[in-house]
């Protein structure tokens, strides 16, 4: 079982991620941000629990769905808004938007815009860590959709052959944009494919932060001990559309899915455990909103990026 203070921390960060993302969606609807966010609502608890099992200097290649990875590591809220808004103060000088947030001191190493493109990059990161900095592990998050790229096969096979310190976390929310896994994927569990690479493959419930943390902690222990990569499949819940304004008319459970919200379940649990009461959660939410207000104000006060930034950062 996760210790109470850790569980409280995961809840607090997931709550902040949910509020922050809701604000980004609101700012998008208002026209301040471009409609390029892929909401992670429903997947924050598992994402944050997974990163809670790792160290801050373990590099992360994150998945495109949501901002909770960065919240977990403590990336500046205003920097992420600035990345989307094209204002000064972001992390990637207008080049990558919210898809390519980079925050090296906190171990955020960005993302591949082509889904599944990071899988093969993470293999080389593992090679470099083993040679230059043994004991660190690289974690790569990706979706069930990306698991059908050929890069999944090439990366997991070669990482397994080399026994690299890599952790592969597949957040299976059942949807590749509008295509359900029943149409795209021959096996019930993505983790079953681990057998084909001779590595452990485990399935965990994305609404169960204890299970997620335990699985990642175990994979990290193996990786740090030189025993090679692991594949962890999180059965995840995508509460919203592929992108913020996705009408989701392809989805029969669009209305009812909110009942399966892992954050709502965790909220009930922290209350039952006596870690927080309703009033404290309300106060926490208000504090988050105030923090987000400050970040938004900072970005709105920041100058637009110089358009000549289009020409920088290409060559070292």
């Amino acid at each position: 079982m996760i210790q109470n203070d850790r569980l409280r921390d995961i809840f607090a960060k997931a709550l902040l991620a949910r509020s922050f993302e809701a604000r980004l969606i609101k700012l998008t609807a208002e026209g301040f941000l471009p409609p390029l966010l892929h909401p992670g609502a429903g997947q924050e608890v598992a994402q944050i629990a997974a990163l809670s099992a790792l160290k801050r200097d373990d590099p992360v290649l994150y998945s495109h769905r949501g901002v909770a990875y960065m919240i977990a590591r403590g990336t500046s809220l205003s920097a992420m808004i600035a990345d989307m808004a094209g204002r000064a103060g972001g992390t990637n000088n207008g080049k990558g938007g919210i898809m390519h947030v980079v925050d090296l001191p906190n171990g955020i190493y960005g993302e591949s815009g082509t889904l599944g493109g990071g899988l093969v990059v993470s293999v080389g990161m593992g090679m470099a860590l083993r040679r230059r900095d043994p004991g660190r592990v690289v974690v790569h998050f990706f979706g069930d959709g990306a698991s059908n790229r050929g890069t999944f096969h090439e990366a997991l096979n070669w990482a397994a052959v080399q026994k690299l310190p890599c952790i592969y976390i597949c957040e299976n929310n059942g949807w590749a944009v509008s295509v359900p896994t029943s149409v795209s994927t021959a096996v019930e569990n993505i983790a079953d494919r681990a057998a084909g690479y001779g590595i452990p493959g485990v399935v965990v419930d994305g609404a169960d932060p204890d299970a997620v943390m335990a699985a990642v902690a175990n994979a990290a222990r193996r990786a740090r001990a030189g025993e090679g990569p692991s594949l962890i499949e999180i059965k995840a819940t995508r509460l919203l559309g592929h992108y913020a304004a996705d009408p989701q008319d392809y989805r029969a459970d669009a209305a009812s899915v909110a009942q399966r919200d892992p954050l709502a379940a965790l909220r009930r649990r922290v209350i039952e455990l006596g870690l927080l009461d309703e009033a404290e959660i309300e106060a926490m939410t208000a504090a988050h909103e105030a923090e987000i207000d400050l970040a938004v104000e900072a970005v709105k006060a920041a100058p637009p990026l110089d358009a000549d930034q289009a020409f920088t950062d290409l060559y070292a």
Binding site: P59, Y109, G117, L119, V120, V121, S122, V123, G124, M125, G126, M127, A128, L129, R131, R132, T151, E154, A155, W158
Partner: peptide
């Protein structure tokens, strides 16, 4: 090639 990119960004 992808691993080459990953190794390169980490200092190899």
């Amino acid at each position: 090639v992808g691993a080459g990119v990953g190794a390169a960004i980490m200092g190899l």
